[in-house]
Structures are given as C-alpha cells and as structure tokens.
Nucleic acid binder design. Structure first.
Lengths: 178, 178
DNA sequence: CGGCGTTTTGAGAGAGCTCAACATCGGTGG
DNA sequence: CCACCGATGTTGAGCTCTCTCAAAACGCCG
C-alpha cells in the first residue's frame, strides 16, 4: 500500500531495534499491553481479529513502509493479533519514545496525522466496497480508486480485499474478458 | 457516536462561525476544494460517496461532537458529499487555521491524532463486520463491541451500519427472541 | 519430470435481497 | 375520543447471487 520511503514517520524509527519474524510468528496478541510501535521494513504482517464466535477476520495486511496498528499508539492494549506472513523484518520503538518524537515538533505531528488520515480513508473505502452486494459492483468500486488490476499472483489478495472468494472474482474477471 | 464534549478538538472550534443546514442541504460536494473544517454541534451529517456506476454509498454519519471528514484536513478536495440529515448545526473553521491550532502545540496534536486513531478503529471494525457473510455473524461481531442493542427507532440505523436490509435484521432479532 | 500454488470451470445449496402485505406505534387534527 | 397518517416493526414468497465443495488445466521451479 505505502511505498518504502524515507518519510517523516519512517525517520522516527531510524534508531529502533530491528527484529526478524518467522512465518506465522506472533508480533503481538489481542489483549497484550501496547509497549512498542513497529515499522515494517520487510515482509508482511497481518492484523487479525477473532470474534467471540472464533471467526478469524483479517483487518489489514501491512507491508514495507507501513506502521503496525497505528491506532494502538493511543490504546493501552491491542485489539487484534499481529502475525507475520512470510519472513518479515520490523523496526521497533517504545510507544512513549515514538509519541515523544511524533508530537515533539509540528512537522512529525502533521506527517503522523496525515498518515492516520490516509489509513482512515483506505479503511472507509474498504468498508464502502464491502457494503455492495455483487462482485461486479465491488470490483467497479475498487477500480474507481485504483489504476489497474493487480498482476498475476495477486488476484487472490484482491479477492480478499473485496471480501469475496477467489472463485467469485475469477468468474467476474472471466465474464469481463469474454 | 462521539459524545458532546468539551474536548481538545471541540475547543479548537470555539471561535468558529455557526451555520445551520436544512434537511438535504449540501455542506460540501465531492471534488470541491477543502476550505473549511466542520464540527457538528447539532443534527447529523451524512458522508456519501457515489461510485462511477452511480450507486450511492454511505461512508459515515456524523453526529454532535464529531468532526466532518477528518481526513479532508490533509486533502486538497473532498472525496465524498456531505449532506444534512434533518436540521443540523455546524461550527466551521478555515482549514489552515484548524491545522495551525491542531499542530501548534503538542496537546492538541495528540488529541487530534487520537481522534483520527479512534475513527480508524471504528472504520476497520465496520469493514470487518461487513466481511462476514451472515446477518447472525455480523450482529454478533457488532455486539462484541457494543453494550446492547439500540432502542426502538434506531434498529434501521443498525441494519444500515451492518450492511444488511432492515428485514434481514428484524428477522434475525426475531429468531433470537423466539 | 514431479510437486505446488494459481487460475479456471462446474454444480448444488444456502442466505439475503426484493417486492409485497400487514401490524404497530405516536402524533395531529377534526 | 376517534380518524387519519407516516414511520417503524413484522412476516411471507420467490429470485438471484455468492459460497462451498470439487475437479481440472495451467505455470513456475527445483
């Protein structure tokens, strides 16, 4: 989603310790106290929430350049699980230090707020897309905010993002080609 | 959603001009340049987005104490329409002034970021709920984050928030009572 | 070549949406 | 007090769509 970038937020993590995670390894779990903020520098971290019934729900997948669970910076405990998908590298910083940096000067504060705002727009967009009933409508809505379809190998990710099964999406794509 | 509150963000609007809107009246439209930030002091404003196909999609409804389109503070133009639902009152402030206030000192900056973070969590929650397939699952997920069902007269709002028709929700509620 | 994951296509069943009718409640005015 | 009205709540029946399960055709890489 967010490019690997020497932006103001990533700069804040420059002094952070680096840690690697194996596929499936947990970065934090729901209910854990929030002690660290994480910047993804490699791989991908999935944010998953489990309902009372036990159904797992993927809230987001964060790739290189993204900050893990932005909202957790203002929470005492996590509200979802953070799990590595594939070998991943994170750079971490204690929350207090992160917030000191981010709110210590107007520049970073603004960059951080802008980052939250972008994440908010993306989340609203995803919610909006999922309020549509048919695969065709959801795909149209997604295309209205994206340049082109993702390359081969990433269609399933798109299906997940749209909240439909891969079969349904493949069928819709075939329908449009023919 | 957000209580009427003398919080740091609402304070910023204390010098803002007040304006009333009639039901259906537009506060801003998609594509308009962002000039003002708005605090809702009475009534309710709907944020609606129209897909290329023309389907209207409600992104959010903002009640008293809420800020209209938080993310717009960092955008040049709006990405959705803001329309009054019922007679509503807004307090407005030029964007530049709003950002000066918000990022001028660490206190407000932090409060603003926290507000964005809360909105982000709410949006992710709604998106998460809508990724579930059945009304029963969506209702369970909603109840896991809310104390109780809304009172009579607001069931249809819940249905909309869950992304289901009112009939489907009424049926599920009846099923649980019986 | 032999796996492994992605892409395609098929058939059946389940769930919600749509359209329709009716009941209930609260307010308004005769 | 009662008739009326609109909005909310309730229930029914059919249709359509996706999900699920299943199988097969690719494509890539060791």
């Amino acid at each position: 989603m967010i490019a690997i970038m020497p932006n103001a937020i990533a700069q804040i993590f420059r002094t952070g310790r680096v840690q690697s995670f194996e596929p499936g390894q947990s970065v934090f779990r729901s209910g854990d106290p929030v002690r660290m903020m994480y910047l993804v520098t490699g791989g991908q971290i999935a944010l998953v929430r489990h309902t009372r019934a036990g159904t797992p729900l993927m809230l987001a997948r964060v790739g290189p350049g993204g900050v893990l669970a932005e909202a957790s910076a203002y929470s005492a405990v996590y509200h979802c699980d953070g799990t590595a998908r594939g070998r991943s590298q994170l750079r971490m910083l204690p929350v207090a230090r992160f917030l000191d940096h981010v709110h210590g000067a107007t520049g970073p504060a603004r960059a951080w707020a802008a980052q939250l705002a972008r994440a908010l727009q993306a989340a609203r967009m995803q919610s909006e897309i999922r309020s549509l009933n048919t695969v065709a409508e959801r795909l149209d809505a997604w295309l209205s905010d994206n340049e082109a379809l993702p390359p081969r190998g990433q269609i399933q990710d798109l299906a997940h993002s749209l909240g439909v099964t891969r079969e349904a999406l493949y069928r819709e794509l075939a329908r449009r080609r023919g």
